[in-house]
Design a binder for these strands. Sequence first.
DNA 1: CACCTGACCACGC
DNA 2: TGCGTGGCCAGGT
Length: 111
Amino acid sequence: MPTNASHAAIWKIVRTIPHGRVASYGQVARLAGLPRHARMVGAVLGLAPAAMKLPWYRVINSQGRIALPPNSPGFREQRKRLRDEGVIVVKGKIDLKKFGWKAGNDSPLLD
DNA sequence: CACCTGACCACGC
DNA sequence: TGCGTGGCCAGGT
């Protein structure tokens, strides 16, 4: 079942995102070997069983913004979890220069 | 098989 | 900084 294989590949990459860092849907898709499948990443994260304890909240869009609707339960949870890891979130936005996973961020301070 | 949806993305203004 | 637009693609109906 190829669908499941994709899910596994995506989850595997997400598990790899370092503590205190964030990656975009498109980035995760590419690293998972699934170029142009950013949308699928979002859908797949929602399917992940809670027991898996996947750091889904470390995945945001290419503009450094939380993709969930502002003020929605999911949005607030993602924001809280990120802040608990030291990620600065202002109006649902995050500075990718500082917290983006292997992006233009020079300071590997946290990992 | 056609059509719609969406936790996306790049580009233009 | 903030929309609109077109493109993308798996899934569901």
